[in-house]
Design a protein around this nucleic acid. Structure first.
Lengths: 192, 192, 192, 192
DNA sequence: CATGAATGAGTTTTCATTCAT
DNA sequence: TATGAATGAAAACTCATTCAT
């Protein structure tokens, strides 16, 4: 019965009433308590369930083809679709930010499911690119973090503004990747 | 009495008790209600007060010197200090994400105070850079958004992990700016 | 659970605590709120229930026998028993007077249940009496109102003085009817 | 400062806030407490003041002229103007009915000021009329009460319905007096 | 005299939780 | 399994009352 997700996502942990979750399912409070000992347990299990059930990246990563830059681009776009552009993941991030102080393990769970694997894959690809001479040496250490940043940006933007201020997430992702790869400065010799 | 900020930031709107806010000030509930009609009013006024009172960027922007790239770098570092690296602003962002559905005007207030001015200043600087030939034409449209993304990233990271997973925000900011300016690819001719 | 009547009748709307009503039933506050959304709803439903549930006059009216004067007398005595001499109705009138400004629909409800039907029945009987020549023409218009007045008087008297100043309601009713029918003046020719 | 009357009359004792009374005077709560020890004292003094300050009937009674029937009619009309048709007295009656259980002395105060004197004067006039042969013997005992009843009726009607259901109080009073004096039955010989 | 700030006991209302059926 | 009634602890909010200024 993890459509409890809808309620918690919409109102937050404290403001959600167990009865609301039940009502959404057309059942009564009592039934919820038959399956979950407390509201907190319900929240935890919902969160764990929803953050675990998502498609994992490993197969996608294995199927990447092309230059490192290409594979990074594709990986980021996949990650984008799975997180910033995926309502469920986005709302889990909202809950992580909102209730993170109260439920740190859940935040770490989300980290382990989405953030860590993505950063790890990026790190691997970047290292390959440096080894193969595709990327400059100095960029290696920070590239994974820098590349991932627009995913956070788009996610937060959507959580904050919903439909009030639209943003073309995919275009921003692509522009971001492009700039990080090629740079914005006119002169082509390396500067800074 | 806007140290109500501490309580709301720590526990969120719904989970904060008016009495806790009072206790933090060494006064009683009744006194809070003498000044604020309801808990909601207290929250709104706290939020508005704290998001308005912050130092504005305008003077900082006026004092920027150097090339466009230099000024952008300095502007972003200033913005970083005022937002991702400023506890109050960071927590306001947490509240915006957590309670944004319930209080959209507050989210928009925060946007008007921090996000919009920063993006506007970045846009102006980028345009200057394009006009002066410092930046390539194609980068212009997306650079402001792309440049700002690491601020979101660092903010969200800190909100989620607090001290559990440290991040060197400033270093990431600088690496991000550097990469966006120069690019990561080895070959110096423009690609993609 | 309309023994909430007792509490509201005894103390008025504002001075009655939901907890008192619960205590009278040997249950707790929460249970009251399980059945009634607010104290106001509880009051409204109690009032409506108690003013509606009372025995209606229609059958009693149908069974009246004798001259118009006799039937009027009997009708008034029945009305007296149902209102001035009926604790529940009396207290509903108290609440109507006390809380009428706040709950005008309830006052009108009481009017529709008790006052209007009684006045209508009286009017019908008086008209019959005039048609049949039993009553003088000039008395017709005002008789219903005049006849009913002692019911108000006795009710108000009891509400004000309870047992501190006793009043023989029925005797006063009968004397009232008798006087209205026959007049108090010695000379038997019609005067003024 | 007995315009506290307005507040208590409008909302009843329990629902009136001391602050409302102060606000009506453009002063603050504290000032009220400078003059009156408690809300209850304020209410009592207001009630006593307003029920005492009214014009007394004694001089009016002394000035009555004409037959007993005429003097009774005039007395009742004067009483009507002073009570049923006088907003202040009417509202005091509302308070007597509403808060009578809590403040019985006030009810008795109102009785002593308005009801008892009127009934006493009526009783005296009726006795004169019986002695002089103007009224029939049998009517004597109940006439005062019966005559006064329409005053109660009109008062209660106005308290309950305000402007929602108008009533011509004076016409009803006069019709009532007329009927009690002359009777409604066609045949002029004494019946019942 | 008058006020405005402060209080704290009390009241309405909410809701997680229990449990007999 | 599921429910609906019931609870009680807690939270929002109210307001009579106090009192230093």
């Amino acid at each position: 019965m993890e459509a409890a997700f809808e309620e918690f996502a919409a109102k937050g942990y404290a403001a959600t009433r167990v009865e609301d979750v039940a009502a959404r399912l057309g059942i009564t409070k009592g039934t919820i308590y038959f399956y979950f000992a407390t509201k907190e347990v319900l929240f935890r299990e919902m969160f764990r369930h929803d953050s675990t059930s998502s498609a994992d990246l490993s197969t996608a990563i294995a199927n990447l083809r092309g230059s490192c830059a290409d594979r990074i681009r594709d990986l980021l776009l996949i990650a984008y679709e799975n997180t910033a552009n995926n309502r469920k993941t986005r709302e889990l991030l909202r809950l992580s930010i909102a209730e993170g102080t109260r439920f740190p393990e859940l935040v770490d769970c989300l980290h382990g499911q989405f953030i860590a694997p993505t950063l790890a894959a990026l790190t691997a690809l970047v290292e390959q690119g440096v080894t193969s001479g595709e990327f400059i040496q100095e960029a290696a250490a920070d590239m994974p973090g820098v590349l991932a940043s627009s995913i956070f940006q788009v996610t937060v933007w959507r959580l904050m503004f919903a439909d009030r201020k639209r943003i073309d997430g995919r275009a921003l992702m692509e522009a971001h990747i492009d700039l990080v790869m090629n740079g914005a400065l006119q002169h082509s010799g390396r500067a800074a």
